[in-house]
Computed example of a mutant assay.
Amino acid sequence: MRTHPPPIIPLITVLLTKHLKDWVMGTAVLSKNEILRAAKKGEIAVTPFDAECVGPCSVDLRLGNEFKVFAKKKGTKEVKDAPDAIGRDAFKRVVLRGGETLSLKPGELVLGVTKERVRLSKKYCAVIDGRSRFARIGLLVHVSSSLIQPNCDNVQVLEIANLSPFTLKLKPGLRVCQVVFHELSSPAEYKGGFRLQKHP
C-alpha cells in the first residue's frame, strides 16, 4: 500500500505547539504557591526562611554583614577572564558587627552578600533583582550579574552601587533585593567555582 506524507500544515501546527509549550514551560516564572510547593518538595530552598519575605512571584533576600571594598581607589588594573578578574589584592574584606553600617559614597561600588543561602535543584534557575524603593534612590544591587545557575547552593554576591548624590548607609538585615525563580525546559547542572560560595 502506498503511503502518503502527512499533511504539512497539521504537522507544522503540532511541532509549533510542542515547541511553544516547551518555550513557555522553560521560561515560566514561579508564583508564590509554586515557590512554596517547590520548597516543600526540597527543589528550592532559601535559608533561613521567612514566610513574610515571600511575595506574589519572588522572595525578598536580606543583606548580610560581610563586604568586599576596593583596597585602592586609583591606578590601572588589567581585566582577566578569571574569578578574580583584577587580582585578589584588589579588594579588602569588611565584616560589620552589632549595629554597624557601611557607608557607600556616590559613585562607589562594593561587593556584599545576602544573609540567605539559595539552593536550587537541576530543575530551576533564578534571577536576582532589585527592589523598586531602592532603585528609585539610585541604589543598585547587581551591576550585571543576576543569574543563579541550576544546582547552586550558595549565598548571593551583590554588586552594590550608589548612583545617588548622597552617601548611603547600608545596614545588615535590610531586605535589599528579591529572587525570582524560573523552571527550566529540561534539567541542567552548573559545576562552576561559585556553586557553593560563602563569601563575596
Rank of each mutant, 00 (worst) to 15 (best):
M1H: 11
H4D: 14
H4T: 13
H4S: 13
P5R: 12
P5H: 09
P6Y: 12
P7S: 07
I8Y: 10
I9G: 06
I9E: 14
L11K: 13
L11T: 15
T13D: 11
T17M: 09
T17G: 15
H19E: 12
K21Y: 13
V24F: 08
A28H: 00
V29W: 01
L30F: 02
S31C: 09
I35R: 00
L36C: 10
R37T: 12
G42I: 11
G42N: 08
E43D: 15
I44R: 01
A45E: 14
V46C: 07
F49M: 13
D50L: 08
A51F: 05
E52K: 14
C57P: 01
C57W: 04
V59Q: 04
L63C: 07
E66D: 11
F67V: 03
K68S: 06
K73P: 04
K74A: 10
G75F: 06
T76C: 04
V79M: 13
V79W: 13
V79S: 09
V79F: 15
K80N: 15
D81F: 09
D84A: 13
D84V: 05
I86R: 09
R88Y: 07
D89K: 13
D89N: 13
F91C: 04
R93E: 13
V95I: 15
G98K: 08
G98L: 07
E100F: 10
E100W: 11
L102D: 08
K105P: 03
G107I: 06
E108R: 07
L109A: 12
G112D: 03
V113W: 01
V113M: 12
K115C: 04
E116M: 06
R119E: 12
L120W: 02
S121V: 03
K122Y: 03
K123E: 15
C125I: 02
V127D: 04
D129R: 05
S132I: 10
S132P: 07
R133H: 10
F134N: 05
A135Q: 10
I137A: 04
L139D: 00
L140R: 02
V141G: 01
S144A: 13
L147A: 09
Q149W: 05
Q149D: 14
P150N: 07
P150K: 02
N151H: 12
N151L: 04
N154F: 08
L158V: 04
L158S: 02
E159M: 05
L163Q: 11
P165I: 05
F166L: 12
L168C: 03
K169H: 13
L170M: 05
K171M: 09
K171Q: 13
G173M: 09
R175H: 06
R175I: 03
V176K: 00
V176G: 02
V176I: 15
Q178M: 10
V180P: 00
F181P: 01
F181Q: 00
F181E: 01
H182F: 11
S185C: 04
S185I: 01
S185T: 02
S186T: 09
S186M: 12
S186A: 14
A188C: 06
A188P: 01
K191P: 03
K191H: 14
G193V: 08
F194V: 06
F194K: 06
R195K: 15
K198S: 15
H199L: 12
